[in-house]
């Protein structure tokens, strides 16, 4: 049974590329457009890994991760933060909220797949 990954990003093209990359690696991918949307998606099914952008309307990535980590089912779920190189402070904030892994934008599809593969099996 393939593991499910949630990608949270307000950019449709980034979501699409992440999905392409991870599906090619044998993962299932579901999408959310911002933090609020993502919190709703967490309820329905078991999600094994979360990838979240930082800058999003409605609910930003940091607040989303902090809230997700409060949920018992997601207490230990690995989270990858999408950061940009100039956002060192954001990376720290993300780590404090519970996102211990990160991928720097812009990234190649293969880099995304590598980051996920380090953390969970398909």
């Amino acid at each position: 049974m393939a593991k499910t990954i949630l990608i949270v990003d307000d950019s449709a093209s980034i979501r699409q590329v992440v999905k392409i990359a991870l599906t090619s690696g044998g993962y299932d991918v579901i999408e959310a457009v911002d933090g609020k949307d993502a919190l709703g998606k967490l309820d329905g099914q078991k999600i094994h890994l979360i990838i979240s952008d930082v800058n999003m309307p409605n609910m930003d990535g940091i607040s989303f991760v902090r809230e997700a980590k409060q949920l018992p089912a997601y207490k230990f779920t690995p989270v990858i933060m999408l950061t940009t190189e100039s956002q060192e402070a954001k990376k720290q904030a993300g780590q404090a909220a519970g996102a211990k892994a990160w991928v720097v934008k812009p990234f190649q599809p293969a880099q995304m797949l590598a980051a996920v593969s380090k953390l969970i099996l398909p």
Binding site: S11, I14, V17, N55, M56, T84, K105, P106, Q108, P109
Partner: peptide, 23 residues
């Protein structure tokens, strides 16, 4: 904020496709 986010998102996505001149 939303102007910034727009530029930020375009830059980020362009990078995914290797559109370095846009980045």
């Amino acid at each position: 904020n939303s102007i910034f986010r727009a530029a930020h998102t375009i830059k980020g996505s362009a990078g995914l496709f290797g559109l370095d001149h846009i980045v």
